[in-house]
Design a protein around this nucleic acid. Structure first.
Lengths: 353, 353
DNA sequence: CTGAAAGCGCTAACAG
DNA sequence: CTGTTAGCGCTTTCAG
């Protein structure tokens, strides 16, 4: 099948050691010998096998990457960040997806261990009490979690609670008082739970009573009755909705408009994730933006440090968990709240400046 | 570092051959021996090394995947499709991105060859005359192109020309005659060129004169002057725009609205790619949808066939290039063209039913 | 049913 | 400067 180092040696009439040196330390070779060997390499289409090589050394220069899905742009971006950073250190990625399924997480880790990856970057369903991760600790396989928001393990994420709190605060600052939080499924992600806590914090800090979170189906065409019920009374309905992610926010905006409500005229909407497409909507989506690519990049940097790679000297401090800054992106889906009375007045024909 | 088969053998007092059998052909072992060995495996956290194993056999059960970027949802979806299908056959993915750069393409292929991947799935900048691919042919490394639309090599894609033609035809069917095509950059992709040819075909078939394509910057905040010039005269401007991809379409819609034009009231817009988010816009994006996940899946299936894997018996035929069906998704960004006269009439106060 | 031993492709002493 | 040789972790005859 493939030419081996032995074939090249035979072809050029030298020993395999010389061929190996031609590959790894060409400066140690006689120019003529080197040329001769290189010719044979060309002629035979020889390409040294990383397998054979890695069998000796400890390092494989392979990183395992485990993400739930690539359908979510958040993870695609993050993977992009990992890829860019790891490539720069001449590391290769081995990708596995899990669909948030713990059986698949287990298989992914097994596979990656068999492949002798030097380390792992993973986004898991449950970061806190996770036997799989405990096992990684036990066998000393370096890993870094990405997006998982925990202090118990090496992780890179935003501070989801604070990010959500800041986002909701931006709504409250604009005069909103009745802010409702919508979430996909809390079961799926610890992150959604942390975001709800952030929402609670912001409401309580402002002396307001948080609503219970409203879980809704991600793929529904229509807004769920539970939400519609909330919206029926124009004078008491929420004036702003905080959605636990951008996809949900887009679905909700569409549903609200179908229901005859204007965004942000009648109701403001804030998402979470800051997916790039959101900015390109005709009504730019307001969102708590997370630096996904940076999360990926930093996950790699932390792993690289665990692996003892050179690395930038400027990332000195090394807390176990690593929080990257989020930002609240105010687009066009948020308006300041106007008291109904003032709103009426504004509609009067002659309104004094 | 890691426990090896020898450690396990020593720990359980058997030979390494027996441990190997415990792993691969447990049915050949005495139950007690097997149990003993398994205990040792547990105790030592032993995980067989794919490297050692693959050194002997020919197959690595590794596929290399080369895509330009994951920032484009088209490729993220396609990768998802490859991943799902390859995982099902117990193959692992090794991912490399190239940013459409041919030097990176070269390095990616080298790396993957060194890793002894059994085959390659790639999306390249230039599929027709590509020395890298010629070399793959020469060394008999099985590969399948994904998204590249060529008949010269094994490829899975939609028929970009026909897909574009069908999309434009849908516009013409709705009465549009002045249809302009917008593209990101033709240099970047052979696909964009094929789409323009499809646009030309549709126009010529309808007895209309195609406009020259208008290339525009992808990241601009504002519409380019060249486009604005086209839009200045309400009576002669294009009534529909065909954008070579969805991202462009979203940017354009936003720009049009900023410029005071209504979509689809004043002007219709059609995109290409059918990214899922497009359907969730408040004005659902019309688009020529390509089955990206399926493209990934079929790319794997074709590769699997080249690799001699069992595979579904129902994909009998085997043309080199493989075209998957596209579909024209009519959203809310397309309206039927109304003659200016009729339009005036419709605005009259008393309009007979 | 189990063990001994050869060998997969390569690197790294160690000699020469 | 170059060749010889001993493994790296595993599978696979071939004997027993």
């Amino acid at each position: 099948m493939h030419a081996t180092i032995r074939d090249v040696a035979a072809h050029s009439g030298v020993s395999i050691a010389t061929v190996s040196r031609a590959l790894n330390t060409p400066e140690l070779l006689n120019a003529e010998t080197l040329a001769k060997v290189r010719e044979s390499i060309e002629a035979l289409d020889f390409m040294p096998s990383a397998r054979g090589r890695q069998l000796r050394g400890v390092r494989t220069r392979l990183v395992g990457v485990i993400v739930p899905t690539l359908a979510n742009p958040v993870f695609a971006e993050s993977l992009q960040g990992i890829d860019e950073a790891a490539s720069a250190s001449d590391y290769r990625l081995m990708l596995m997806t899990t669909a948030y399924d713990s059986a698949r997480e287990r298989r992914a880790i097994e596979t990656l261990r068999e492949q002798r990856v030097d380390g792992l970057i993973a986004t898991v369903a449950d970061a806190e009490s996770n036997p799989l991760l405990d096992e990684l600790d036990r066998i000393h396989l370096p890993y870094v979690l990405a997006h998982n928001d925990t202090v118990r393990r090496a992780a890179v994420s935003v501070d989801n609670r604070r990010a959500a709190r800041d986002g909701v605060f931006a709504l409250l600052q604009r005069g909103h008082k009745r802010v409702l939080m919508l979430a996909g499924s809390f079961a799926e992600s610890d992150r959604a739970r942390l975001r709800y806590r952030g929402y609670e914090n912001a409401m309580l800090d402002a002396g307001l009573t948080p609503y219970a979170p409203l879980e809704m189906d991600f793929n529904a065409e229509e807004l769920p009755p539970s939400l519609l019920a909330h919206l029926s009374d124009p004078l008491r309905r929420p004036t702003a909705l905080f959605c636990s992610n951008d996809r949900l926010a887009m679905i909700v905006i569409r549903g609200l408009r179908h229901a005859g409500l204007s965004v942000p005229g009648d109701i403001s909407v804030l998402g979470f994730d800051g997916i790039p497409l959101g900015e390109w909507l005709s009504t730019a989506l307001s969102s708590v933006a997370t630096p996904n690519r940076e999360i990926g990049r930093h996950a790699w940097l932390r792993l690289a440090k665990q692996l003892g790679l050179p690395g930038d000297p400027d990332d000195a401090l090394d807390p176990i968990a690593f929080k990257l800054p989020h930002s609240v992106r105010i687009g066009a889906t948020i308006a300041s709240y106007i008291e109904p009375a003032a709103r009426m007045a504004a509609l009067e024909p002659e309104n004094p400046a």
